Simulated assay, not measured.
Amino acid sequence: MTPTDIFGFAGTAASVVAALVMVRASWQMNSAQVWKGEAEAQKTRADRLQDDLNEIKDRLTRIEAENRRLVELITTLDPSRIRSGL
């Protein structure tokens, strides 16, 4: 095998390795973009769920206040009904 043949094989091998490195880098970049997109989607979902939870808490607070007021009214009108379980 002559030095020219060796350099020819080495050049071909280097090209194949470079191509594999490029393919791997491209795959990792695409993978990173997919994960980034998934993370953004999950954050959007979490934000929406947090907003829903806050709305539920606010509604519950209002309902509890209304119930306290209704109990006060019923107690004022007929306290015996509260003791008997309405």
Results as ranks from 00 to 15, higher is better:
Met29Trp: 12
Glu72Trp: 00
Ser15Trp: 04
Ile6Ala: 09
Ser31His: 14
Arg59Pro: 03
Ser80Phe: 13
Gln33Val: 13
Val17Met: 06
Gln28Val: 09
Thr12Val: 11
Ala41His: 00
Arg62Val: 07
Val71Pro: 01
Val34Cys: 04
Ile6Gly: 03
Leu20Cys: 14
Pro79Trp: 08
Leu60Asn: 15
Pro3Leu: 03
Val21His: 03
Asn67Ile: 03
Ile74Phe: 01
Ser84Ile: 15
Ala46Thr: 04
Asn30His: 11
Arg81Met: 06
Asn30Gly: 10
Val16Ser: 01
Leu77Phe: 08
Ala32Val: 07
Arg83Phe: 10
Thr44Lys: 04
Val17Pro: 00
Gly37Met: 02
Asn54Phe: 01
Arg69Cys: 04
Asp58Gly: 07
Arg62Phe: 04
Ala18Ile: 08
Met29Asp: 15
Glu66Asn: 04
Ser15Ile: 10
Leu53Asn: 02
Thr12Trp: 07
Ala32Cys: 05
Asp58Gln: 05
Ala39Leu: 06
Gly8Gln: 10
Val21Ala: 14
Phe9Trp: 08
Gln42Pro: 02
Phe9Cys: 09
Ala14Gly: 06
Pro3Cys: 02
Thr4His: 05
Asn67Glu: 11
Asp52Thr: 11
Glu64Trp: 00
Ile63Ser: 14
Thr61His: 10
Ala14Phe: 03
Trp27Val: 15
Lys36Ala: 13
Gln33Ile: 11
Thr4Tyr: 04
Gly37Pro: 00
Arg62Ser: 09
Val71Tyr: 06
Arg62Gly: 05
Ser15Tyr: 07
Gln28Asn: 11
Ile82Asn: 07
Ser80Thr: 15
Glu66Ser: 02
Ile6Tyr: 04
Ala25Val: 12
Ala19Phe: 04
Lys57Asn: 13
Leu70Lys: 01
Asp78Pro: 00
Ile63His: 11
Glu72Ser: 01
Gly85Cys: 08
Met29Asn: 13
Phe7His: 10
Ser80Asn: 14
Ala65Cys: 02
Ser80Arg: 13
Ala13Asn: 05
